[in-house]
């Protein structure tokens, strides 16, 4: 597994793209991010527990909100669904929304990497997005 392929930001970009399925609008990106967090939760919750998984997404959101203010006041529920995100992205450019959401996902992946190591993170995320982590994709 090449380290470069799993740089959190690149990985987050790939995940968001997969979940967006080609949709480029802000709302489509927001929905894609929510689906990504849902899948992330599904992969992590049985190992880390609900609390830790929710905290991870909250941390990512809070770390990104400084740079991307549209993420401020967005809340995360226990199932890692966003409350208020769709309203916030409506008046934002799709490029900014995409960048903010990729950054948020990258922060979450980065934290996970720091805590349990990249190998384990790849194993866990690989279950959710096999298309990204399969050897055929070069990851």
């Amino acid at each position: 597994m090449g380290r470069a392929a799993h740089e959190p930001y690149d990985l987050a970009g790939k995940i968001l793209a997969v979940e967006a399925g080609g949709g480029l609008g802000g709302l489509e990106q927001a929905d894609a991010a929510e689906r990504a967090c849902g899948k992330l939760r599904q992969s992590l919750v049985h190992v880390l527990g609900s609390d830790a998984t929710q905290l991870l997404v909250k941390y990512a959101l809070s770390k990104t909100a400084g740079e991307f203010p549209f993420l401020q006041d967005v809340e995360v529920d226990r199932d890692c669904r966003f409350r208020g995100l769709r309203d916030k992205v409506e008046k934002r450019g799709s490029g900014e929304v995409r960048d903010g959401l990729v950054m948020m996902l990258a922060k979450g992946i980065g934290l996970l990497n720091d805590l349990i190591g990249e190998d384990l993170v790849c194993l866990l995320l690989g279950k959710a997005w096999p298309e990204i982590f399969s050897p055929d994709t070069g990851s």
């Binding site: 880390l48 527990g49 830790a52 805590l115 349990i116």
Partner: peptide, 8 residues
């Protein structure tokens, strides 16, 4: 032992 820490 929180599983996150245990794995870490």
């Amino acid at each position: 032992e929180p599983p996150l820490k245990m794995l870490r």
